[in-house]
Design a protein around this nucleic acid. Structure first.
Length: 424
DNA sequence: AACGCGGGGCC
DNA sequence: GGCCCAGCGTT
């Protein structure tokens, strides 16, 4: 990019003072486009790498050739940009195998961007329940409403317009543009960045700006020379990362890109698996909380979390910091002494570790008086439950599966053991 | 650039 | 029990 381009130890020629030709050759080697002993032109090598990967991925069925490696994922059977958009949103930080049933149910219930735009947020969240990162659902919902309002219901092809949609970041723009609209755009997700970091043997911390820039440039360059379906190229790279170039134990022995992989050339699978360099792990904070399960024998009291908080908009058994146990009970209209300890739940999140003590008791008339229908926000007395909730409701056991909830609630109700049969 | 945000599969 | 996943928005 400029004369300051710092060089790794293996490329002294890139230091200030080296001539432009040496710098260029060095850059090629850093990017892994050279094969030992064969100084072909980079374009040829990239083209060969591309062909090898696409053949491995297997676009469409083709008799005689080995079976395609691509998984038969349901969103690969549609060309509907809306369906692809939903899949890409669900796939953010979520494994494909996990997404499949959620995506099928979501598309069945809300098959078009119009139906999503008109749906109640509670329905959208219920369809998302269990998938995690619920902000994705709220942003998808909001974005669908704007798409209908601004673009007449069709997802815009324009990348700027796509990028302005809630929840659609750099990766998702690339994914939608290349897969749904067949544009030659890079989509760099965790898989692609890992694959490219290994092919190019990038030893910088992958989270550093330098590393990101290199990886991004790599993706752009590789995508730009593709002659086939841009969506196939995007997905071939990701599929390689998911199935072969795995984070921990890459299967270099069966990798179609092995001949172009600088990391493999440098140190085989043992070295390749050390890339990209991992960031040091942070310690998870432990949070001590309490949950109060109030029930009638056929129904249980749930509270809806305020928007913009953890689990925002979802229903759960009312909880509070352990230190606010008395205040939570009082807010729910029950006496702490009337509750018994049912057990404790440990819930691990990406950034914290929750220890939830589970208390159990019967619904009091005072509590019943505070319960309101689900759509009635800010009911009287709810404030006393704490700043975390904006509604209370008495929910029959049979209605639990249709309520948007976090998996923590399943665990809490399981420990409370209200019912012989599973409640969910 | 670092952090908040979920949940589950796999070692 | 830790790691990581078809990331995004905020600060």
């Amino acid at each position: 990019m400029d004369g300051r381009a710092r060089a790794k130890g293996r490329c002294p020629g890139a230091e200030v003072g080296a001539d432009a030709r040496e710098r260029k050759v060095c850059r090629r080697e850093e990017r892994g486009y050279t094969v030992r002993g064969a100084m072909k032109s980079p374009a040829k090598l990239r083209s060969a790498l591309k062909r090898a990967l696409l053949a491995w991925y297997g676009r469409g069925g083709n008799g005689g050739r080995p079976a395609r490696a691509a998984r038969d994922l349901p969103w690969r059977r549609t060309s509907d940009p809306y369906a692809i958009w939903v899949s890409e949103t669900m796939l953010q930080q979520t494994r494909a195998a996990t997404v499949v049933p959620y995506w099928e149910r979501f598309l069945r219930e809300l098959p078009t961007v119009q139906t999503l735009a008109e749906a109640a947020e509670s329905q959208v969240l219920a369809l998302w329940s269990g998938l995690g990162y619920y902000r994705r659902a709220r942003m998808l919902h909001a974005a669908a409403r704007r798409v209908v309002a601004l673009h007449g219901g069709g997802l815009p092809r324009d990348r700027e317009a796509l990028s302005s949609l809630e929840g659609v970041g750099a990766y998702t723009v690339g994914a939608i543009a290349s897969i749904a609209f067949k544009e030659r755009v890079a989509a760099v997700d965790g898989n692609v960045s890992r694959v490219l970091a290994r092919i190019a043997a990038i030893e910088d911390d992958v989270t550093s700006a330098r590393g990101k820039a290199l990886v991004q440039a790599e993706a752009d360059a590789l995508a730009a020379i593709d002659e086939g379906d841009p969506g196939d190229w995007t997905q071939a790279l990701m599929e390689l990362g998911a199935l072969v170039c795995a984070p921990r134990q890459p299967r270099c022995g069966s990798c179609p890109a092995r001949a172009w992989c600088r990391a493999f050339a440098r140190g085989g699978v043992d070295y390749a698996s050390t890339l990209p360099r991992k960031a040091p792990k942070r310690e998870k904070a432990v949070v001590e909380r309490v949950a109060i399960v109030l029930h009638t024998g056929t129904a249980v009291v749930l509270a809806r979390r305020r928007a913009l908080t953890l689990y925002g908009g979802l229903w759960e058994v009312p909880t509070a910091p352990r230190s606010a146990k008395r205040r939570l009970a009082k807010g729910l209209g029950v006496n702490l002494t009337a509750l018994d300890v049912a057990g404790e739940v440990v819930h691990i999140l990406s950034h914290r570790r929750m220890h939830v003590q589970v208390l159990r008791g019967s619904v009091s008339p005072q509590c019943l008086a505070k319960c309101r229908p689900a759509e009635d926000r800010l009911a009287d007395g709810v404030e006393a439950v704490g700043a975390e909730y904006d509604a209370l409701d008495l929910v029959p056991y049979g209605d639990l599966p249709t309520r948007a909830h976090a998996s923590l609630t399943r665990k809490v109700l399981d420990v409370a053991n209200l019912h012989r049969e599973p409640l969910f």
